[in-house]
Design a binder for these strands. Structure first.
Lengths: 292, 292
DNA sequence: TTAATTAATAACTATGAGTTATCAAATAGA
DNA sequence: TCTATTTGATAACTCATAGTTATTAATTAA
């Protein structure tokens, strides 16, 4: 079988094409002139095209050689860039991070993280998907997500967890509701009203905490509606179908006809955690974790 | 001094990246497995990045490896094209133009273009391949095609588009069908018949237009067969399995037992466009674009 | 003519790609 | 649990070939 073309041939060709002089090109490449001559000749044989005209005492490029030089310039540049980029991806300063999140994380934590990372590592791309606690854990385990923003007390073996935000709870009532931030003293004041909550499939920890807040005050809430979307819950409250208890940070980002009344003197907090897989192989993740 | 990266390394890397199996990749390359292992290891040392995770029984690409594979695919394609082009230039030709097209473009537009270009630039070579809208866009983006003849409303960023032919639609019926060019007044006259159409994967714009032609006349066509080949569609119509609606220009070039009845007074037109990549590096393309 | 410059040719050397043989680890099957 | 099988890595070798030195042939300049 005949020879294969190699980058070496291209490098040598470029040197001769630029110098238009075999000995000078050979000097520049730190090889001997006969060695260079033979490699160029071999290259011409491989691609089957004469690239240089050796006119007695002068070397010039043929038309095909001129074209090849221009393209190889581009190709070498592209190869260099690709290798640099590959190194960057390996070092995590480039690449993609796949994030899952609960809607309530979109109000404060995630935007802050994105802005911060973007400033330091502008070449990292993000893909974001809102999904439930449970689906996030599953996706992280399957390496389909790099990071998850969840509200969970416990996570399975092999998953790392870190608290990133602690939030108080607020009561959400219609604008025209009798209670105001001044008159609101305890959640017991709405013990007789209907409650609209996030569905427990979406976040069972949230659901359990709401229940315990009420139990602490001696009543069991009458839950009439459940939803997975904050927007929906607010709309239902606005329509007078009941009241809700949600993390206070959800106050930002929505423009609806509801009042937020922070619940005073309760020990329960809405804790947002970030989770990731211990042996995740995405090099970009290691970089991101530094920001958390 | 340390080693230099060579195309050999890239070729080997691609084989392993595709097989994800060192011995199989080695077989494909007709070299021994230890030789391959060593070259891959050397490549990883040269660029300073681990490209494969060897899990003792499974081989997978790292994130950096995935990126490198995608880029090398592009680079190899570009090198191949460059060498072919260099040979053509050497032979006195002005280069090669790779064209993709929908079958219906072969009736009028492309032959005219070829004749015209051939008169002015007799040394340009053409390679022609029939393929779907979608595959053409993909190939143009990957620099595997210089020109595509498509029926598309929109094309991605970085792709240029220009209308080259506007055609009316015709109803295709068997020769012995009751309708003639004189009695045919509206598509509603065949609202009860079965329709044979180009498959929507082949050209969704075409499919949607046919649907809207029928909807405008107040009925939904009963589509019983779909095909990607005009020839097949005509054969099915000839066999009495239904009627079809196709661009009128398809009347030329086939000798079949069907009648074409141009659909009168409808706003829908079959628009054929030519697409090309904005930063295509083929110098011959610039020449061709002048003819469009 | 002579001297200088250039690329090609010839014969050699030595580097390293690719070889065979083998090992170690990880399954899969009994 | 024990064996057989599959897999990639290691080690030691060999041989093809990139690159070497020495020389020639051809051209140009003085």
């Amino acid at each position: 079988m005949s020879y294969q073309i190699e980058l070496r041939h291209f490098t040598y060709f470029m040197a001769v094409a630029e110098e238009l002089h075999f000995r000078k090109a050979a000097d520049r490449l730190f090889i001997s002139q006969p060695g260079l001559s033979r490699q160029i000749k071999q290259m011409e044989e491989i691609i089957g095209v004469v690239l240089f005209v050796r006119n007695k005492r002068k070397v010039t490029l043929t038309a095909a050689g001129v074209y090849l030089k221009k393209e190889l310039d581009y190709i070498f540049n592209h190869i260099d860039f690709t290798i640099r980029q590959t190194r960057l991806i390996d070092q995590g300063s480039n690449g993609e991070i796949r994030i899952g999140f609960l809607g309530s994380a979109m109000q404060t934590v995630i935007p802050e993280l994105l802005v911060m990372v973007n400033k330091e590592l502008p070449n990292i791309q993000f893909s974001l998907e809102e999904m439930s606690n449970h689906l996030q854990v599953e996706a992280v385990e399957k390496d389909q997500l790099d990071l998850g923003f969840v509200r969970l007390a416990r996570v399975p073996e092999g998953i790392q967890k870190k608290t990133v935000h602690t939030d108080s709870f607020s009561l959400v009532v219609p604008l025209e509701h009798r209670l105001t931030s001044k008159t609101f003293k305890s959640i017991a004041q709405v013990s007789e009203e209907h409650f609209i909550l996030f569905s427990s499939d979406y976040s069972s920890l949230y659901y359990d905490k709401i229940m315990s807040i009420c139990e602490d005050k001696g009543f069991t809430p009458k839950v009439t509606h459940k939803s997975v979307h904050a927007q929906t819950i607010f709309k239902l409250v606005e329509s007078g179908l009941g009241v809700a208890i949600v993390p206070t940070s959800l106050q930002q980002g929505f423009d609806l006809g509801v009042k937020f009344l922070e619940i005073p003197k309760i020990p329960q907090k809405a804790i947002l955690s970030v989770i990731w897989k211990k042996d995740n192989r995405n090099p970009a993740l290691q970089q991101i974790l530094k920001f958390l």
